[in-house]
Design a protein around this nucleic acid. Structure first.
Lengths: 340, 340
DNA sequence: TTGAAAGCGCTAACAA
DNA sequence: TTGTTAGCGCTTTCAA
């Protein structure tokens, strides 16, 4: 038996009519409320299936103020973010945790200037119950835009304003970049290495890069500047940086690369220049992305971050806003493989 | 002068009251309708800014049936899609074109089984005005789920059901995979190569891979099977496949790799095995992702697809549903660089 | 256990 | 050019 609604999309009203009950009762069935007679539930369910009824979320949202959707906002700079396995992992963590709350993660990208206002409007427009903001640069305009939002916001990475001002007390999750870098460099020192170089990320643009460099300097405050080379978190960047370091200091005996991707470039250059790893030069990376760290030759010793867990934590913080300033620094640990 | 709404989020009603006009007038101002006195527009705008009023999208949507959001749905298989520059480009095209229509692209990922129903519910729930579906496998459950949707849907890549059935006449955009492959192989033949191998994509899972293999066979129907090696569209896969081909047929003199990423792996293996490109072995890729094709040594000759344009086209088809079956095959062309 | 009725915040006829 | 009015499709008191 197939019922019709004259081409209109069926409404709760239609379901009620065909079931011979009131709208309230249908609503109760849909929302799984207990106090409905079992036969009625059955009957209503049948009609719903028959009609192919799907609740109108806009109508529901208008009264409940809930959407069951959470926005994940991230920059998509030309040819970068999508090639970043770190982001891949983080996002997966957020998505899986949200799924546990029955919420749909919707990803929004920031690329061109126009995107900012459109995304800000989207977030303010009530399309989502909360937002997770990723990998924004210090001083990113979106930081300020989120101040006026009346939904909870969680940042990945420390939120900072350009001028040193602070944003509203949003939650924030980050890895222990500085501590992790310290562990790595201390390990190299403990190995007896005395000329420890570092390949950094873009420390003027990213907190994580600045913090990892700070960790290196914590352990080696007197390291000469020519042992530090700035790169851009890419493999090629790591390879080029390594070449520059070798040109300046052929005698270096260890390298701390601030990401696994860069470390794999570092290894490539060392191989091309005929240096043995770890005998001649010990190498440590950062992130412990298994797809990279367990595929290099030799296997990469690196600072482990539980990236998926960081993602999950961000999602959790969105829903459990118990403490006043629910932020978290996720600890790191050194994973020894073959390169150091 | 700051007005208050007792902690409530301000509504259109509040704006009307403070402006001394009716709700309709405020609505007209917000929607930029012409027939409103300039001073009134000014005044209303001031109150809106003062109150920090943002329209409630749910309420608006309930009456207009529009959301100004479009979903982009794609699988995020563990460690794959995000590392795929092709997807990166396609998505950028979709986003930019949508931005032109004032629509926000929201990206939804499919990963675990539960995701399917949640995403289907999201799409059916009226959160978006349309959906762009990417890179689904043949027989992907989502194909059938979209049949009941009352929003327009555009597929990237041909939609097929497992059992050979057809889906509702959704729009569909794809590159000319078969024709492009033919061009590539014909070029190798014209170069005088007589033992042309091919490294294929996962042709049992992806249309594009099957079509590119078909193009190879169109030109070389009698090529022996040992000249064909299946890989997985990754760089490492391409490298391994090349090694296998060389082991079987050390005399091969050309390779058509069904993606640039695989082609870069192919070049790596050829270099390691001491073969000169193109003197000993000519190599052609597919996609023309400049980040890859212009970074290989030698520069990669490849089949060009305007991937960003394909993305834009998908978005356009969503809004301009004029013809009955608005599908499109985007043509390809061979870009000669150094490798063939 | 069920129904009646009000209202969420907005747009869109229709009148004025 | 502006205001009045009637919904959009749902949830949620409150009564029955």
């Amino acid at each position: 038996m197939t019922r019709r609604t004259h081409g209109r999309r069926p409404t709760l009203e239609d379901v009620a009519r065909y079931s011979g009950v009131s709208r309230s009762t249908v609503s109760r069935v849909i929302n799984g409320e207990p106090r409905v007679r079992a036969e009625v539930v059955e009957q209503v369910r049948r009609v719903i299936a028959d009609l192919g009824y799907v609740p109108n979320q806009a109508a529901r949202q208008l009264v409940t103020h809930r959407t069951n959707a959470v926005a994940v906002v991230a920059p998509q700079p030309q040819n970068r973010l999508f090639l970043d396995p770190f982001f891949d992992c983080l996002l997966r963590g957020v998505r899986r945790e949200l799924a546990g709350y029955g919420a749909q993660a919707v990803l929004l990208f920031l690329d061109e200037p126009d995107d900012y206002t459109r995304v800000a409007d989207y977030l303010a427009g009530g399309h989502v119950d909360g937002a997770v903001l990723f990998a924004l640069h210090p001083g990113d305009r979106l930081h300020e835009m989120t101040d006026r939002l009346d939904i909870p916001v969680v940042f990945g990475g420390r939120p900072l304003l350009r001028d040193g001002g602070t944003v509203r007390a949003h939650a924030c999750v980050d890895g222990d970049n500085r501590g992790g870098a310290r562990q790595a460099v201390q390990h190299l020192v403990a190995l007896g290495r005395t000329r420890v170089a570092t390949v950094t990320g873009p420390y003027d643009q990213e907190h994580s890069a600045a913090d990892r460099l700070a960790g290196y300097r914590d352990v080696l405050p007197d390291a000469p500047p020519e042992l530090t080379e700035r790169a851009d978190y890419t493999q090629q960047g790591g390879a080029d940086a390594m070449a520059a370091l070798l040109d300046r200091r052929p005698d270096l005996d260890a390298v701390f690369a601030a990401s696994d991707l860069m470390a794999s470039g570092v290894l490539r250059t060392l191989r091309e220049r005929g240096r043995r790893v770890p005998e001649d030069v010990a190498v440590i990376g950062f992130d412990d992305l298994t797809a990279i760290a367990e595929a290099t030759d030799p296997l990469l010793t690196t600072v482990h971050q539980d990236v998926e867990e960081m993602g999950r934590l961000m999602a959790r913080l969105l829903f459990e806003r118990t403490t006043e300033l629910p932020s978290a620094i996720v600890p790191t640990r050194l994973v020894r493989r073959a390169s150091a």
